[in-house]
């Protein structure tokens, strides 16, 4: 019974809460989507904590996602022992990086009075959950070897069965307690996600890589204004604006 509660009802609830409230919060209070960076108040310790944490956790999450999306390829890849070692070590390194990061971020938050001034109750909850999650993850990586292979044959089928709305617990029931804790704690993180600063991961500014540098917003419609205005005197042939020239030379457009 409690298996059903923890591995079927909890995940569906967590997922629904995460999706519904994330969207609700974005529409109702989009303003609150911010990195809430405290670098301005304390920068030195943040460097080690934040850089290690973010790269570590992005690496670890990517690993999990690959296992979930391409289980067969992962198994095939791990068929050669050297490749398995490489994958395992890489995963462990990312995990350790994330652990070092989150520990140092926690210490920083607890010791710097300025950072404490901008720490909310939810921040404490999130940090605790993340500490638990990453510690469990690293522990599992060290003591339950070859996780990259057994993960895709136990947890992945279970997660996929949830996804297909045909929950099937038989693959995870025999798993050790530690691993089950890692799974349940993940659901708890999903539940707090929309109510915490974690939402900032949804607004990562990748579009910056290809937008023009300068942004101009008109409060009138320039095309319509141009249509109503007197027609321009003819420009002498060959006179183009510098913006045209840059476009023609294939250089990135600077402004619009």
């Amino acid at each position: 019974m409690h298996n059903n509660l923890l591995y079927i009802i909890l995940p569906y609830t967590a997922f629904t809460v995460a999706v519904v409230f994330t969207i609700y919060r974005y529409r109702k209070d989009g303003f609150s989507y911010s990195s809430l960076s405290s670098q301005f108040l304390e920068s030195k310790e943040l460097f080690y904590g934040s850089v290690a944490w973010h790269f570590g956790v992005i690496g670890a999450l990517t690993g999990h996602a690959i296992g979930f999306l391409f289980p067969k390829s992962v198994l095939w890849f791990n068929g050669v022992p050297v490749r398995l070692y490489i994958l395992e070590t890489t995963g462990l390194l990312f995990g350790l990086l994330a652990l070092v990061g989150i520990v140092s971020l926690t210490v920083r938050r607890a010791t710097s009075s300025r950072v404490r001034a901008v720490t909310s109750k939810m921040d404490v909850v999130v940090v605790m959950l993340l500490l638990i999650q990453v510690s469990l993850g690293v522990y599992i990586a060290v003591f339950y070897r070859w996780g990259s292979s057994w993960f895709v044959t136990s947890a992945v089928p279970y997660l996929r069965s949830l996804w297909l709305l045909q929950p099937d617990l038989k693959m995870i029931e025999p798993l050790p307690l530690i691993i089950k804790l890692h799974i349940v704690n993940f659901y708890l993180l999903l539940i707090v996600f929309p109510f915490s600063r974690l939402v900032h991961m949804l607004v990562v500014p990748l579009q910056y890589l290809w937008r023009p540098y300068q942004i101009v917003i008109w409060n009138w419609n320039r095309r319509r204004a141009q249509a109503h205005a007197p027609q321009p005197a003819r420009q002498p042939a060959g006179v183009a604006s510098s913006a045209d020239e840059h476009a023609a030379e294939g250089r990135p457009v600077f402004t619009r």
Partner: peptide, 18 residues
Amino acid sequence: NPACVAACPSGAIYKRGE
């Protein structure tokens, strides 16, 4: 040629046309 606009990753800073 505002540097602040050019640097904003979110594209939140803009110059008013008018």
